[in-house]
Structures are given as C-alpha cells and as structure tokens.
C-alpha cells in the first residue's frame, strides 16, 4: 500500500497550497468560533460552558463542509484526465481512494484540532467545561465527519462534475442527518427508531454529544466509512470496464 502514503501526502499538500482550501478552513473556523462564543455568552452566570457546542454545530455543518472538501477529489481527476494516469500507475484502486479519503479526513482533523484547543480557553477563563464530555463529543464528531467525507467521496467518484457531486452529497448527507426529526415524516414509532438508527444524528446527538461513548456508534461510523469507501473503489474500478 505504498501508494496510499503518496496519494495522501499529495492531497494534503494540495490542501495547504490551494487558496480554495484556506477559504473553506477560514469559513469553518469562523462558524465554529461563532457557535463557540454564542454558547459561552448563553452560559455566563448560568451553567458551565458546554464543551460540545462546536461538535454539535458541526453535526449540522458537516453537511456542507464535507462535500466542499471531497467534491473535487475524484471528479477533478476525471475531468483533468489524471485519473487515467492514476489508474495506470502501479497502485491499486483502493490505495487511491483510501489515500484520498485519509487526506480529507486528516485535513478535517487539523481543523477540528484547532477548535478543540478552544477548550483550553474555557478552562483558563474558569468556564468549567466537562472535559470528559469534550473528549466524547470530539471523538464522536471526528468519526461523524469521517463518515460525511466518505459519502462525499462516493459522489465525487460517481460523476466528473464537481457541482453535481457536491450537490448530491449535500442532499444525501441532509437525509442522513435528519434523525431527531424523523417523526415528522414517519408516524410509526418503531419505524422511526429504525430509520433513526440509520442516520448520523442517531449515533451522535444522544450519545457522543452528551458524553456517552457507545461501541455501537463507533461501529456505525466505521462501518459507514468502510461501506462508502468500498463503493467508491468499485465505482472507480468500473471505469476500467465501462
């Protein structure tokens, strides 16, 4: 899997040398900062600050950020013709997909790490954040984000138009997100529960976001990532026989 590393570092370099990625990063940090501060304002003289404020915002925000980070990844390779060259390089198709996924996840991890450091501010100004809850919420949103990125990657593999890829992944992520309000469209409570189990929110808002680390949630996100990457690999592979 030598190719994974090479692809990973190329994409990573791509993020750090592209003004586009810096714009996304700035928007990401701006919004995260906004939600962080507004939560702090609300907590003053009320409760300890909620360390899950940023993760909870991101559970919605990643619907938009994940497609922005992934929509170019494979669609542009196809459009620029470099995909043909990648597929004739001595690396497997899975190495290409995994390398690209890991770099998107890595970039997201860096952004997340910056916001996680804000907890230090909370401790220093005496806002008593529950650090255990912070750990759970950040592990959760890290996996959650990975799952969003893997969904985005599938659409990027599916089409050579960035716009189509971005739009379709946003729509899909939005559907996957709607867990807590599933009752608005489904009347049967057991069906609602089943459907909620299939959503991203169903494995975040009532577990990681409140400080509970559940093995099944980890399996869900890891499983979703695995399944999506598998499908993306199959799609890229299909270029060979389409």
């Amino acid at each position: 899997m030598n190719g994974v590393g090479v692809i990973f570092w190329r994409e990573m370099r791509g993020y750090f040398t592209s003004p586009y990625a810096y714009l996304i990063a700035a928007a990401f940090l701006l919004l995260a900062g906004f939600f962080f501060v507004s939560n702090l304002w609300l907590s003053v003289e009320q409760t300890p600050a909620d360390p899950a404020a940023i993760p909870e915002f991101l559970s919605f925000g990643m619907i938009f950020f994940a497609p922005l980070l992934t929509m170019r990844m494979l669609a542009e390779e196809t459009r620029e013709g470099t995909m043909e060259l990648l597929l004739t390089a001595p690396v497997s198709d899975s190495a290409i997909i995994i390398g690209k996924f890991l770099s998107a996840w890595g970039f997201y991890t860096i952004l997340l790490g910056i916001t996680a450091s804000y907890q230090i501010i909370l401790v220093n100004i005496g806002a008593f954040p529950d650090l255990g809850k912070a750990v759970a919420a950040y592990i959760g949103i890290w996996l959650y984000g990975g799952a969003c990125l893997s969904v985005g990657l599938v659409y990027s593999a599916l089409t050579d138009s960035q716009i189509v890829a971005g739009f379709l992944s946003m729509a899909t992520l939005f559907l996957l997100y709607l867990g807590d309000n599933i009752g608005l469209i489904v009347a049967d409570v057991e069906l609602a529960r089943l459907l909620r189990t299939l959503t991203l929110q169903g494995h975040f808002s009532t577990s990681f976001a409140v400080g509970i680390f559940r093995a099944e949630d980890v399996v869900f996100f890891a499983g979703l990532i695995t399944a999506m990457l598998f499908i993306a690999i199959r799609i890229v592979e299909s270029r060979r026989w389409r």
């Binding site: 810096y22 940090l29 900062g33 702090l40 003289e45 409760t47 005496g126």
Partner: peptide
C-alpha cells in the same frame, strides 16, 4: 458551578476565536 466571565474577557475570546484565528488562516492562504 456557575461561571462568571467579565465582558472584557468575553470580548477577548470573541476576538480571538471569530476574528483572529479565521483571519490568520485567510492571511496564510
């Protein structure tokens, strides 16, 4: 515990988190 943060401290945090960090990233880009 109830938290007490002075308005000026809050302003500093807001400035750092909303302006400084994203601004630095933009500048770097």
């Amino acid at each position: 515990p109830t938290i007490f943060i002075s308005p000026s401290q809050l302003d500093q945090v807001s400035f750092f988190v909303i302006f400084l960090v994203p601004g630095l990233v933009l500048l770097l880009g």
